[in-house]
Design a protein around this nucleic acid. Structure first.
Lengths: 168, 168
DNA sequence: ATATACTTTCAGTATTTTTTGAAAATTCGA
DNA sequence: TCGAATTTTCAAAAAATACTGAAAGTATAT
């Protein structure tokens, strides 16, 4: 397979993959493009390579910056802004975990704390199953939260090495 | 907080949560409703409690069954079909991991295998970064695949217990 | 100061996804 | 075998989401 075709496939699959995980196609594609670009790109480069409008490009770059996956680079002597993505995949994964944990897991745990305090007699089976369900989700959620914290702090080598032995 | 309100909040947040993870709102809400229902429900029960149409209910129940999260129950002497969800959250999580792994991670790894074999000279920096990116995603993906396999096989007690010690 | 190069915004439009509801299909008891 | 109860399907409608492009905003060089 030629590089051009392979790049095309990579970008388009990364986009499709993203949509299964609640990330919009364009954002994932811009990220993919930057991952496989040896040098920083401008907005115009991305517009051209992905066939998308200026507005769309701009919005999604900003979003990627908010997620901590892309950053602005200033090239000396250049007026234009350039963008680049973190290339270390382990760091990328950790960053995504960090953000999703903050945006989704933590608020969910807070809600569950509130819901667990529902009024009512646990002898009522509706109350019982509600409280039991909420408690058990909370328990697992808290464990996940801790585990992910550790992953965020871990080095790839430590993580892969130890996990491998651990899980044989 | 009253049970009715708490249930409402639980269902609606579970739905919103789902949409952040590529699961449609109704499917997540039906699942939530079944999780906190002590007894099996009929389609009509769900339609009424969630205010959704028959078609929508039917389609999403089927989808939940495909995901292995809900099953049909036959109540003796009843013509109608009843449905119930697995209540053990650890099992639910394992089932979701299993399905997403099969549907998404595995096909992704297959694609990466193909893309890694791109033609071209690695002294070309475009070829080099492409191959390096694909390889490193593949490496991490394979590790995730193995780790998730272990989780799927593990018991909750083993998992939580050992993970806790492991991660202090 | 002004012109120019570049970036950001956002109302309107397009696309995709989800939902509806009525018709068709199926199941089951009599 | 018939017919009522129930489930399934799917074309059309609605809702949600994403994208465009032109105008407004900013920064920089001269």
């Amino acid at each position: 397979m030629k590089l051009t075709e392979a790049r095309q496939q990579f970008i388009s699959s990364w986009g499709a993959f993203g949509t299964h995980w609640g990330i919009n196609r364009t954002m994932a594609q811009i990220h993919a493009l930057l991952l496989i670009s040896p040098d920083p790109l401008t907005q115009d480069d991305m517009m051209e390579q992905l066939n998308i409008s200026r507005g769309n490009t701009n919005m999604n770059i900003r979003e990627l910056i908010n997620w901590g996956l892309v950053e602005r680079v200033l090239l000396s002597g250049e007026r234009k802004e350039y963008f680049t993505a973190e290339k270390d995949i382990w760091k990328v994964v950790k960053q995504i975990i960090k953000e999703r944990k903050k945006r989704e897991l933590e608020p969910m745990l807070q809600l569950l704390d509130k819901l667990e305090e529902v009024e009512g007699d646990k002898r009522d089976k509706h109350v019982k199953i509600f409280v039991d369900t909420v408690s058990s989700i909370k328990k697992l959620g808290r464990q996940a939260d801790k585990t992910l914290d550790m992953m965020i702090k871990a080095e790839e080598s430590w993580f892969l090495g130890t996990m491998m032995k651990f899980f044989k």
